[in-house]
Design a protein around this nucleic acid. Structure first.
Lengths: 105, 105
DNA sequence: GAATAATACATAGTATAACAATGTATGTAG
DNA sequence: CTACATACATTGTTATACTATGTATTATTC
């Protein structure tokens, strides 16, 4: 089951991140907390940061550094126009998948 | 998107196969057709046969050869008791995931 | 009747992405 | 002054879908 859950995350995580960034700006560390809070899914930092770099390379998200009054600067992520369009496609695919699987069980 | 869909399949496919085998016996080639019919997801033979071998090694499914009046014999798969128990856990996890994601969007 | 497609199994090599481990640096609580 | 939380990042490992390829039988089409 643990191995399986890990496989389910592949693909799902990108979808969850884009959903979270639809209406909000978040920085990396915050995304980990948000994902845990909203989905009970715990992801490692070594999972999130490479994921965000992939999303950025594919131009689905943009990032900007924001200096803090104290502490380490945060890298905030926002959805790009491409990211929004991709999210819509993903939502369609996901919705269809959900419907299909619910018919099976 | 194509790359993403491929990643979503990782994990999802095992779940779909176990769901299909809950009330029916299917042979490999038939599973590919059933998955396409029920989920619009097309999977390659090079995906399914290794997947079924993994599920068998984990004792989630059992298989038996059935000779045909004509043509190549078929390997039919059935759910084991372990497979049924695992499927229930998967359904719980999936149901929670579905609820969480729907709250996001 | 020969070529092509569909059925039915299988394996080898490649690419992708989550994870564990590790590292750097700052701030806070005991 | 030690431990923990915050905040970034990279490297190597592992699991799994995909492409390509192979074998064998039956049905279809030219």
């Amino acid at each position: 089951m643990q191995k399986w859950k890990s496989q389910v995350k592949k693909g799902t995580l990108a979808f969850i991140v884009l959903n979270l960034l639809k209406d909000n700006e978040f920085y990396g560390y915050e995304l980990i907390e948000q994902i845990k809070k909203h989905t009970q899914i715990e992801i490692a930092e070594g999972t999130l940061y490479p994921l965000m770099n992939r999303l950025k390379n594919e131009d689905l998200v943009a990032s900007k550094w924001v200096e803090q009054a104290s502490g380490i600067p945060r890298k905030y992520y926002t959805l790009t126009a491409t990211g929004e369009a991709t999210l819509l496609q993903m939502q369609n695919f996901w919705s269809d998948l959900e419907t299909s699987i619910n018919k099976l069980s």
